[in-house]
Each structure stands twice: as C-alpha cells, then as structure tokens.
Design a protein around this nucleic acid. Structure first.
Length: 427
RNA sequence: GUGGCUGUAGCUCAGUCGGUAGAGCCCUGGAUUGUGGCUCCAGUGGUCGUGGGUUCGAGUCCCAUCAGCCACCCCA
C-alpha cells in the first residue's frame, strides 16, 4: 500500500453530516436574493493574476503574500481567486452588462487565500457575494444593507450579529486625510507599537484599529477621516443613515472601520458577531465606484458585499439543530433482491418527494432491521417469502406507536402515502 | 509569515518512574432459525501523525517534519 494522501492544509472536506446545514443556508439565502430581484452570475475560479493586482491593490496582504499564483502551460500568470468582486467587475465589463443597465448580481463559491488556518478561516473558503452596478445614490447602499438584514432574519441569526458602518469619503478626501494622518503619526513615531511603525509607510489606515494601548492613546488626537469628508460624501452618508433609521436598522458608527481592499470608498460596513472568537466578521462590504475604470472600463458606480459561509455555518451549527431529512421508508428483503429494488423505484414514482431506501449489502433479516432502525426511517417495509407468495408486504412503524400491517403490493403507494401523511400531522 | 498548545482504535479519551497498548461508544455476530430499540455474552479493529536520534528497551525522552486548535498579522 502506498503512502496515504491527505487533503491540503486549510482545504477541508465538507462531510455528509455537514452538508444539510450548507444546503439549508444556501436555499434560504437564494430565496432572499431572489426576492430582492438579484440574479446569479457564475464566474471562473481562476483569473489572470493582473486582475487581482490591479483591483485589490499591490501593497495589500492579499496580493503580497496570500494569493495562489502559478504559471499555466503558456507561461501566463494565473491566480486562484482570493475574492469575488474583481472577477465580477471583469465579467460585467467583458459582456457589457453595465452598458445602460443597472444589474444586481450575486455569486457563490470557493475563494482561496494562503493564510494560516484558524477557527473560521481557511485556505479554501466559501463566499456568497452581491454586487450592484450603475447606481451612485445611497438608496442602493441602503437596499443592500436592508437585504443583509433580511438574510439574518431568514437564517434566524438576527440576534447574533450587529452592523458597523463608516464612510471612507471620496478618493481625494482619503488622500488628504491620509497625508495628515501620516504627518501626525510620524511626529509620534516612537510611541507607536512595532507593527504600526511598519504600517506607517505601507498602510497607515490600518494603524487605526491597532490593539496596542499606547498607539490607541496617540490616535485620540489624530486627524479624523470624518473631518475630511467632502460635501458629496457627507451628504451620501447622511442620506444612507436617514434611510437606515427610517427602516429601523440599528448600527454603530465605527470610525476605525477600514476595509482591507484598496478599492473601497464612501460607504463601508461590516456585520460582526462576538460568538466566533477572533474572526467576528460574518459579512463585509461597501461602495467601490472607482474599480471599473481602474480596470480599464467605463466609470461605473458599484456597491457590494461578501459573506463568509463557513462562519455562517458555524453560527448555524452551534445549536446542533437537525436539518437532515430521515428516510420515509426502508425496505427490508433478505431474498428477492430484484423485486425489492424495483418495488423501491415504484414507490419513488408513486410517492414523489418521499425518501425511499432499499437495503443493500445482504445480511440477515434481523441485521437488515437494525440498519432500518439506524437509518432513522419512519416505516420499515418487509418483503419476505411468505408475503411475496400472497403479493403482500408488511409495513411496520419504526417510531411512535402503531401495529405492523400486511398490505397488498398494489395498494402500497396509496396506503403508505396515507400513513406518512397522518404521521406528518401528528409531528 | 510569528508565537503557544495538542496528535494513542471509526469517535471521545486513559496509559504512573522508559519495560512491546487499554476503556467507553460505534461496528459485526450470538442469546431470539423472519422483526429494530432495552439487556447480556463474544468478536473485529492500532505502523501510538510521520521520519530520525538517545537507550538493552521509547506511546513515554530529544530533534526534525506534517497536521489540528488558539492567538497575532490579516481577513469572510
């Protein structure tokens, strides 16, 4: 026997015990997205490396050290997508989806980042993302946030998450603030922690959410982005808040909320939970008006967000809720395998939507009954020598009360359907 | 990428001072020759993560490596 091959670090199998939660989550989310009129787009998992460098930003951690980048056989540099927005913008541009249109799109699938795995953070992880193009007013920002709130209600998570909100202003607002911030922090360089000193050149905004106490003290008197917002950004943010207030959405203004990707401007938001350890962000997004033109397309305002599905699944799984449907009927038949299998198919057509399991793999009558029990099936259907001679089968309720009964094969679909319907009611 | 903790049966874990591995659950069979669950009995299952080293002897000590967890960095 050869050496065992294991999955790649940080790239996990999602096992049959877990897939019901995933499916449940995906179904619920799809329904909400659909109700808001958003349409699905399916995008490649691999794009040209250049796309991510130009959109996410050359000096971000994602691009500098987290991308899965490789050369294909032509010598082109390709990258496994670390996020979905860049590819979505690229596709919209390539197929003229933005031309005179204001598409509302969503997508779902795996993303890849070479980070150290940790609770709620993996190298292959899944996001559901939403992007709305061509609308520059705060109403669409609000709609998107309202939609996320509806999503939490649909998932029963509304008490688990809270909304944080900020405005990053226009590009030139950020530029002026950034210069003032760097100037101020440079004067206090010695009082900053090591990480923050390093960030001073590379990504000064990040210093704002440093956890170092001294650094936070220095920051108290630092220039605030809010004071640098121009008239248009200020009005945009004001109106967004007015809509959210009118809709009864609660939020907290977090002035140190900065997104890690360079393309964001104006509105940024995060839904966070304290139930997830260090990875509290469950959904994050914002406005990125400059991205389309930055990628060589026409100017197209845009807002979007992405949710981390592993994190949501984790929240949903904590209660250990049963979402796996049990078999309705389990067919036990030590002999007459062909008859058992064809009967199973007859029942599947006769009882659409029901789960019919036919025992396979041999074993005594008794051991097959044990399997029926273990499967959690509601009814066992026993098909033996004596029954078949009379063209009958024995139906035995496995859970709850009730006596077993002999039923003519011809009447099985009707009788089983009645039986199951009655059980459905008393549940 | 940095630091800390942890890897023993399918699962949860015990294993003392270094002396060639155990429990519970699960699984299989039987008690009950065609009837699940409860009970009792028996049985299967291990390269002790992997590779080196020290030792007469390593699950136990040392080194490396891989993986998992937690935190940092960063992020969904």
């Amino acid at each position: 026997m050869g050496k065992k091959i294991a999955s790649i670090r940080g790239m996990n199998d999602i096992l049959p015990d877990e897939t019901p939660v995933w499916q449940w989550l995906e179904e619920r989310a799809r329904a909400v997205l659909q109700a808001y009129g958003y349409r699905e787009i399916r995008l490649p998992m691999v794009e040209s490396t250049e796309l991510f460098k130009r959109s996410i930003g050359e000096v971000t951690d994602i691009v500098e050290k987290e991308m899965y980048t490789f050369e294909d056989r032509n010598g082109d540099s390709l990258t496994l997508r670390p996020e979905g927005t860049a590819g979505c913008v690229r596709a919209g541009e390539q197929h003229n989806l933005f031309y005179g249109a204001t598409p509302r799109l969503w997508y779902m699938g795996p993303m890849f980042r070479h980070e150290r795995p940790q609770a709620g953070r993996y190298r292959q992880f899944h996001q559901m993302g939403v992007e709305a193009f061509g609308m520059e007013g705060p109403d669409i920002d609000a709609e998107i946030i309202l939609m996320t709130a509806a999503l939490w209600r649909a998932l029963g998570l509304e008490d688990e998450v809270t909304l944080e909100l900020n405005s990053l202003g226009d590009a030139h607002d950020r530029q002026r603030h950034r210069e003032a911030l760097v100037a101020y922090l440079s004067d206090h360089r010695e009082q900053l922690d090591d990480d923050s000193q390093r960030r001073l050149e590379r990504n000064p905004l990040r210093i704002l959410d440093s956890k170092d106490a001294n650094t936070q003290k220095v920051l108290e008197d630092a220039p605030r982005l809010a004071d640098y917002l121009g008239e248009s950004a200020r009005a945009h943010f004001h109106e967004l808040r007015a809509i959210l207030d009118a809709a009864g959405i609660e939020y907290r203004i977090n002035s140190s909320l900065v997104r890690g990707l360079d393309y964001y401007g104006k509105t940024v938001f995060e839904w966070v939970t304290d139930a997830l350890g260090a990875q509290g962000t469950v959904c994050a997004g914002g406005r990125y008006d400059g991205l389309a033109s930055q990628l060589g397309g026409r100017d197209t305002p845009a807002v979007g967000f992405a949710m981390g599905l592993e994190r949501l699944v984790w929240l949903l799984s904590r209660d250990g809720g049963e979402r796996e449907p049990v078999p309705d009927v389990y067919i036990v038949a030590p002999e007459h395998r062909a008859r058992a299998l064809t009967l199973a198919d007859e029942l599947r057509t006769g009882l659409p939507g029901r789960r019919i399991l036919c025992h396979c793999g041999g074993g005594s009558f008794k051991s097959q009954m044990k399997k029926a029990d273990k499967s959690g099936a509601r009814l066992a259907l026993m098909l033996g020598e004596a029954e078949l001679e009379r063209s009958e089968a024995v139906v035995k309720p496995m859970r709850g009360g009730g006596e077993q009964q002999s039923v003519a094969l011809a009447e099985l679909p009707a009788r089983l359907s009645q039986w199951l319907a009655r059980q459905d009611e008393t549940r």
